[in-house]
Measured scan of single mutants.
Amino acid sequence: MVVWDEDGFQGRRHEFTAECPSVLELGFETVRSLKVLSGAWVGFEHAGFQGQQYILERGEYPSWDAWGGNTAYPAERLTSFRP
Rank of each mutant, 00 (worst) to 15 (best):
G69P: 06
T17C: 10
E15V: 09
R13M: 14
D65R: 09
E57M: 09
W67P: 05
Q10T: 08
A66E: 15
I55K: 11
F44A: 02
P74V: 10
A47R: 10
G48E: 09
E15Y: 09
F44R: 03
A40W: 04
Y61A: 01
H46I: 08
Q52E: 09
Y54L: 12
Y73G: 13
W4K: 00
Q10G: 04
E19P: 10
A47E: 14
Y73M: 08
I55W: 05
T17P: 01
V31M: 02
R58S: 10
D5P: 06
T17G: 08
A18S: 15
D7K: 07
V42Q: 08
V31C: 05
E15S: 10
G48D: 11
G11D: 01
R32T: 01
V2E: 10
E76K: 14
R77H: 10
L37A: 07
L26R: 05
W41A: 01
T30V: 15
G69R: 07
G48Q: 11
H14D: 02
V2L: 07
H14Y: 13
Y54A: 12
E45Y: 03
V23G: 02
G59I: 03
V36P: 00
P62M: 06
Q52C: 05
D65I: 04
A66Q: 11
R12V: 05
L37P: 03
Y73F: 15
D5H: 04
G48W: 06
E19W: 03
G43H: 02
F9G: 00
G11Q: 01
Q50R: 13
N70E: 11
P62L: 05
E6N: 04
F9Q: 01
W64H: 07
S33Y: 01
A72K: 12
L34P: 00
G43L: 11
H46K: 07
V36W: 01
L56Y: 05
S33F: 01
H14C: 08
G43D: 02
R12D: 04
G8W: 05
L34A: 10
E6C: 06
H46M: 11
S63F: 06
P21A: 15
Q10D: 05
F49V: 01
D65Y: 08
P74E: 13
C20G: 03
D5Q: 08
P74I: 06
D5E: 14
W67Q: 15
A72P: 11
P21L: 07
E25Y: 06
E29V: 03
Y73H: 15
Y73V: 14
L34F: 11
Y54I: 12
Y73A: 13
S63T: 10
D65T: 12
V23R: 00
K35T: 05
D5V: 05
L26P: 04
R77T: 10
T79I: 08
E25R: 07
W67Y: 05
Q50D: 14
L37Y: 13
F16C: 07
T17A: 08
T17W: 10
G51T: 07
W4V: 00
E25Q: 12
D7L: 08
A40T: 13
R77D: 10
A72N: 15
K35V: 08
Q53T: 14
S63M: 06
E57I: 04
P21D: 08
S22R: 00
P74G: 11
E60D: 08
M1C: 14
L24C: 15
Q52L: 07
V36I: 09
W67K: 08
I55C: 05
Q50P: 02
I55V: 13
W67L: 15
G51S: 02
F28N: 01
E25C: 11
T17L: 07
F81Y: 03
V2W: 06
S22E: 04
L24I: 13
S33R: 01
F28Q: 07
K35N: 02
N70V: 13
I55H: 12
E29L: 15
A72S: 12
Y54W: 14
Y73D: 05
E76C: 14
Y54M: 08
